[in-house]
């Protein structure tokens, strides 16, 4: 088990390195850098001015060297201008010779600065991630019980009217992406056209002060899309368990149906959904980006859109590191959890 986790961690590290390098490569392609120079400097810079602006800041170096600097394994750039001022990646302009750091990268805990928000990337990410964590927490709180109840109810009597109506419901939710259900919910429950106005169409205030009125729609929008798949998986595993020999034995012994479902079937039926729930979390991240844009909730997804549309390199890299780590950790947890929950695998 220990070896398995170690191997998985190693693979995770390799994946994270590859992915951040791809992001780094794409954001550092020359047209992107040119745009960066023009937005940071001024828009009417000549070709040579752009070239020297980029050269002074180490952008024109070899891609691998630049990536190494971001990681903190290669020394940061240092430029000495003709008038003697020395600028560098890792120290303020004209810092004293011996107080200059050589390395400043992720390994040294320096995530860089966001050019759009003019702020430290690490602090930006942590505040936005907290906001999204709140959203995700509520989503899981709503989604998981709902999905499990729907799945178990549908799966306990395969082919019954209850099964059909609940299965139709879960197929409909999987067919409704967040931007569709969000639009429909806002139109029905928050617009003046239908006159209901039960909820608010914007969740901007929910960051400081989440109320039922401003937070319910975003939460239910993400929860619904994610829940259909989990419910269908739960249903499949429940129907499989319900046809098992030991359930038949219990029925023949005269155990009541609710008792069979709750005491005998449920525990075995919940192993598979656990994996699915964990693997669903990275997909929620996608939904989070859409919903945060739609409801204007300034969390991590919103940050991703801002960073990507402005080619904010440092921020974008940090965002992708975080999201890749989320994906890989949930995969790891789902693997370990599956082994741990399933006695057949655990014992052998």
């Amino acid at each position: 088990m220990g070896l398995f986790i170690l191997r998985r961690l190693g693979l995770m590290l390799l994946t994270a390195l590859c992915l951040t390098f791809i992001v780094f490569f794409l954001t550092n392609l020359y047209p992107n850098l040119e745009k960066l120079a023009k937005t940071q400097g001024n828009f009417r810079m000549s070709e040579e001015a752009v070239e020297s602006w980029l050269g002074d800041r180490g952008y024109t170096d070899n891609m691998f060297v630049k990536y190494g600097r971001w990681l903190g394994v290669a020394p940061g750039w240092v430029t000495e201008k003709e008038d003697g001022t020395v600028t560098g990646q890792c120290f303020a302009e004209n810092a004293l010779e011996d107080s200059r750091d050589r390395y400043c990268g992720v390994l040294q805990g320096d995530w860089g600065r966001s050019l759009v928000f003019k702020d430290d990337v690490a602090s930006l990410i942590s505040t936005r991630l907290a906001a999204t964590g709140k959203l995700m927490g509520f989503v899981l709180l709503v989604m998981v019980p709902m999905a499990l109840i729907v799945g178990v109810l549908a799966g306990m009597r395969e082919g019954s009217g209850l099964d059909r109506s609940l299965s139709t419901f879960s197929i409909t939710t999987t067919a409704t992406p967040e931007y569709v259900s969000g639009v429909i919910f806002v139109a029905i429950f928050a617009s003046s056209a239908f006159g209901l106005k039960w909820f608010k169409g914007s969740a901007t205030q929910a960051i400081e002060n989440a109320t039922f009125e401003n937070f319910f729609l975003p939460v239910i929008t993400i929860a619904l899309y994610g829940m259909g798949y989990i419910a269908r998986m739960t249903r499949a595993s429940m129907t499989e368990v319900m046809t098992a020999q030991y359930i038949r034995t219990a029925r023949l012994k005269g155990v009541s149906f609710p008792n069979i479902v709750l005491k005998h079937a449920l525990r075995n039926a919940l192993i598979a959904p656990f994996t699915v729930i964990m693997l669903q979390i990275p997909w929620l991240l996608n939904g989070v980006v859409i919903v945060e844009t739609l409801f204007n909730y300034k969390g991590f997804g919103w940050l991703l859109v801002q960073a990507a549309s402005n080619n904010d390199i440092q921020l974008l890299l940090a965002v992708s590191v975080v999201s890749v780590v989320v994906v890989l950790i949930t995969q790891l947890i789902s693997d370990i959890g599956y082994v741990y929950l399933n006695p057949r695998i655990r014992i052998s």
Partner: peptide
């Protein structure tokens, strides 16, 4: 798995911007 671990929207943003 590498491609699957990428958040889809980030990938779209990286591939589809006019500069790329």
């Amino acid at each position: 798995n590498l491609i699957l671990a990428f958040p889809v929207i980030l990938l779209f943003y990286l591939l589809v911007t006019p500069e790329i």
